[in-house]
Write a protein that binds this DNA or RNA. Sequence first.
DNA 1: TTTTATAATGAAAATATATTCATTCATTAA
DNA 2: TTAATGAATGAATATATTTTCATTATAAAA
Lengths: 203, 203
Amino acid sequence: MPRTEEQYKEMRIATQNKIHSSAIKLFSKKGFAATSVKDIAEGAGISIGLMYRHYKKKEDLFNELVTYAAEGLDRTAKLFQSDDSPVKLIEQFTLEILNDFDKDDEYAHFQMLMNQSSTIEDPSPEIKYLNKQSEAMLHQTARLIEKGQKLGQFKQGNAMEMALFYFASIQGLAMIKTTMNEVFITPKLEIVTSFLIEECISP
Amino acid sequence: MPRTEEQYKEMRIATQNKIHSSAIKLFSKKGFAATSVKDIAEGAGISIGLMYRHYKKKEDLFNELVTYAAEGLDRTAKLFQSDDSPVKLIEQFTLEILNDFDKDDEYAHFQMLMNQSSTIEDPSPEIKYLNKQSEAMLHQTARLIEKGQKLGQFKQGNAMEMALFYFASIQGLAMIKTTMNEVFITPKLEIVTSFLIEECISP
DNA sequence: TTTTATAATGAAAATATATTCATTCATTAA
DNA sequence: TTAATGAATGAATATATTTTCATTATAAAA
């Protein structure tokens, strides 16, 4: 006589989505400590009580978002395992990110969530995993760069240093996109990759 | 019969310095909300009560640090006013930052404090001023890039887009330096500026 | 119209953090 | 010794935030 299972499930999913998009926006910009449960609930257009029906603790919600971010990272890390040419891989990957920047705020939000996660003390297992993955991604990129250098596709130099600069620039772009949205311009591929890829072939 | 003015002043300055260095470390890494007064006092090796003898509120301390950051920004903004050649100015400025990165954490801390400041809601006048200054710096850099482009020193492209990427990469480096200190490597000048400066002069 | 299952609410309790303040400590010189 | 001064302490209080929970709202079908 009450609603069907289906209907209840839909309701729950609907409010979950509301909570998620409110929370990612706030956590990614202001960090865990600076965003209150009240803010999240208000942003989602629901009551505080309902928030706690879905998540026992504020931290649980944060951890869930962190887990999503880690999954995204895992997926992209796999792309780098491919046997495609390093230039092609880096260009494809970068282009995808730049497209994401252009489309909406989701990618920037997740990138910022990673930043925020790396500043938390006593990190949860979820956060520890995300931090580990992002460091792994860095090392994998360094290896890809080395490979590209041996093939003469990339400029010479310390591969780790280059990988680090690559991620720094992407993180910085995400930062600026979320804090200075009005002035932000998504850069062209060549701007992001020029430190890495030879442009003028000597005659 | 008690200590002299001088002596008291020295004592006050000594604890102020202790408070400053503890606070900048914590605020810059974790943000305003996530760092507690207790943490700051512990980091400084003093009691909570003494903290409040020096600053009426946690916010006052944050604002003081923000003011220092803004002063630093003002000073470097003036460098860009000079009539030196754009390449020279950018290279000098970048080199200085990279040197600072190598020396210690101070520059990265202040850079991060700027990031943190830009995420705060209801910003104090001090924070507003800092945010305004950092945006002004961005525009000034764009102008400098335009000038360099007209002189044929810089690659062609949207100057604002390039200025934005420049600051993004520096911000990102500061971020990575503070959150992944162990793996951080300060990049070479050429890596940071290659998106901007022509390297191979066509024969 | 009533019953039922679960979503949804928001005020109250629990907890954490910021701030205050009465007290103690340290040093100097009479 | 002791008086004087301001630094320094930390327990007590105020304030803010998180978490709980008794209560209400909603929609479907008997």
